[in-house]
Amino acid sequence: MKGLKKKRRIQIIVLAFVALAIATGLVGYAMQDGINFFRSPTQVAEEPPSPSETFRLGGLVSEGSLQRGQGEAIRFSVTDGNATIPVTFTGLLPDLFAENQGMIGTGRLVNGTFEATEILAKHDESYMPKEVVDALKEQGVYQEPEDATGGS
C-alpha cells in the first residue's frame, strides 16, 4: 500500500512540472510579439536587426530632415550624435513632434530605413524618454535642460 501512495505522489509531482513547463512556454510564446527592444541609431547602425524584428528606435529628430509626402507619408532622420537612421512613417504625427526633439518610434528596419508604425514624442519642454536620455548620455551628447526639475 505504501508503494502505491509513493508512486501516485511521484506521478502528481511529475504532472505538475509538465503542466508548469507547458504554461511557461505558452506565456512566452504569447508575449514574443509584445516585447519591443529599444535601440539607439548607433546600435542599429552597428548591428542591424533582421527585417522581421519589431523594435523601438529613439533619438533626436535631425534638423532639416523632416519631409512631408503625399497624404500622410512623412520622412525624417533620427540621430544620437554618432549615427543617423532614415525613418518613414505613414499616419498622423503627435502635435509636439518637431525637429531637434526627442522621439521614439516602433517599427522595423527594411533596407536601411526604419519603417515606423507608431511615433511617440516628448510631452513638455523638458521631457525626453528615459531610453533616449540614456542612449544620448552613453554617446556623450546629452545636455541637462536648464530648467530641469528632477523627477518624472
Results as ranks from 00 to 15, higher is better:
2 K>A: 13
2 K>G: 12
4 L>N: 10
6 K>T: 10
6 K>I: 09
7 K>N: 14
7 K>L: 15
10 I>C: 06
11 Q>I: 08
12 I>N: 09
14 V>S: 02
15 L>I: 10
15 L>A: 08
16 A>E: 10
18 V>D: 08
19 A>V: 05
21 A>Q: 09
22 I>L: 11
23 A>Y: 03
27 V>H: 00
28 G>T: 02
29 Y>N: 15
31 M>W: 04
32 Q>C: 03
35 I>Q: 08
36 N>R: 15
36 N>E: 06
39 R>P: 01
39 R>G: 01
43 Q>D: 09
44 V>S: 01
44 V>E: 04
45 A>C: 01
45 A>M: 13
46 E>D: 15
49 P>H: 12
50 S>I: 09
55 F>T: 13
55 F>D: 04
58 G>A: 03
58 G>D: 08
62 S>L: 15
64 G>L: 04
66 L>T: 02
72 E>L: 11
72 E>R: 04
73 A>I: 00
75 R>A: 06
75 R>Y: 02
75 R>E: 12
78 V>G: 01
83 A>E: 13
84 T>R: 11
85 I>W: 00
86 P>Q: 07
86 P>I: 01
86 P>E: 01
89 F>E: 05
90 T>W: 00
91 G>S: 03
91 G>P: 01
91 G>R: 02
92 L>P: 00
92 L>H: 05
93 L>W: 13
95 D>W: 01
96 L>G: 13
98 A>W: 00
99 E>A: 07
100 N>K: 07
102 G>A: 12
102 G>K: 01
102 G>W: 00
103 M>V: 04
106 T>P: 04
114 F>L: 07
116 A>R: 10
117 T>E: 10
120 L>F: 15
121 A>N: 02
123 H>V: 12
126 S>A: 10
127 Y>I: 02
130 K>H: 08
130 K>S: 07
133 V>T: 13
133 V>A: 12
135 A>K: 06
135 A>C: 08
136 L>N: 09
136 L>K: 05
137 K>W: 12
138 E>N: 08
139 Q>I: 04
140 G>I: 01
144 E>Q: 09
145 P>N: 14
146 E>D: 14
146 E>I: 07
148 A>T: 07
148 A>L: 14
149 T>G: 15
149 T>Y: 10
150 G>M: 14
150 G>P: 09
152 S>F: 05
